[in-house]
Computed example of a mutant assay.
Amino acid sequence: MEFRYLGNSGLKISEITYGNWLTHGSQVENDTAKQCVRAALDEGITTFDTADVYANTKAETVLGEALQGQRRESLEIFTKVYWPTGPGGHNDCGLSRKHIMESIDGSLRRLQTDYVDLYQAHRFDTETPLEETMQAFADVVRQGKALYIGVSEWTAEQIREGHRLAQELHVPLISSQPQYSMLWRVIEDQVVPTCEELGLSQIVWSPMAQGVLSGKYLPGQQPGQDTRAGHAEAGQSMKELMRDEVLEAVQGLKPIAADAGLTMPQLAVAWVLQNPNVAAALVGASRPEQIKDNVKAAGVTLEADVMKAIDDALGDVVQRDPAQTAARAPQERPC
């Protein structure tokens, strides 16, 4: 395993980070989820990312149980706040002081830890003054419940303003967690340059485009019911990726991966790690073997000719429009 600094902080994290979105507490059984965590630990992964909204808090509980018995100082545990939890009442979401202060305590109980290494704003809250949000995060840090703070799917402008307030409050805002893959490059034009300037790193989710870049989905064929695309809930977020023209282009990556001595998932993860502003690629798993395969992307260098071949194979199916970050963000609180 290789390790990278997160932003301009002194915190190092494993460049392959284990995330449990759509798996723990929902898509896979708890015993299998715990086996995946153990496989991650065995492969040298020390960084684990979750969120209170995943499986409506169950994912945090499963992760907390799976990590019991591990030396806490040897782990980096991340979680997030914003989306509705519990019964979804009128204050059960967003980034108000009330929701943040209540949510961090709930997350710590479920994770069975006294603190998280990174506490992240899961989206930007248009209905709460940013000053209120950042002050609440600052208080969470000063209370010792989080060591650092981060954001997820914020625009470059939102990151800049949040960073300004964090500096005034003397709290470390060090990371951004956006979607990023060979197929989804919307952060490259604005978010990445802004973060490089301000000293934030990217912790990227869906580097395999929710499994599409594994090459297992074929154009003109329905996905199997045991796959993410065939899953009743998870598959809803994959409709754009499952277009035949995208799947056809992805098939063109197979000889590139083979020539590089990599599997398709390894190629996808290695690709995002070539970006120097990326500190870690988030990978999930429904089986322990997937973790063992993905971690082999750590430390891989893709030569310039391989990067060009990837661009040529994917062509126009790559999404690059930076406006997509704002377009896909919630315009009002979801509760």
Rank of each mutant, 00 (worst) to 15 (best):
F137D: 09
L273G: 09
L11V: 08
A285Y: 09
L165M: 06
D105F: 04
G315K: 09
A229P: 05
N294V: 02
Y54H: 09
E248A: 11
N294T: 00
D293Q: 13
D316T: 15
E65I: 00
A59F: 00
R123I: 01
F48H: 09
H99P: 07
C93M: 06
G215E: 01
I159M: 15
V53M: 04
P334T: 04
N277L: 04
V283Y: 10
A166I: 13
A234N: 14
A258K: 15
Q225E: 15
Q135T: 11
A323P: 01
G89A: 08
M307T: 06
G106F: 00
M238F: 08
L173M: 14
F48A: 09
G88E: 05
A59K: 02
F137T: 09
D42T: 13
A309H: 00
V81P: 01
E248K: 01
A51C: 07
S176T: 04
Q190G: 00
Q222S: 15
V283M: 11
M238H: 06
E131D: 15
G88K: 10
A156I: 02
D312C: 03
L302D: 12
I159F: 14
A257L: 05
I45K: 02
G299T: 07
D42P: 08
A33V: 15
V81G: 02
M307L: 15
L200I: 05
D259H: 04
G230K: 00
V295I: 14
S74Q: 15
V246Y: 09
E153L: 03
P322E: 04
P255N: 03
V151S: 06
C195W: 06
R287F: 02
Q68E: 12
L241Y: 10
D92H: 13
G64A: 10
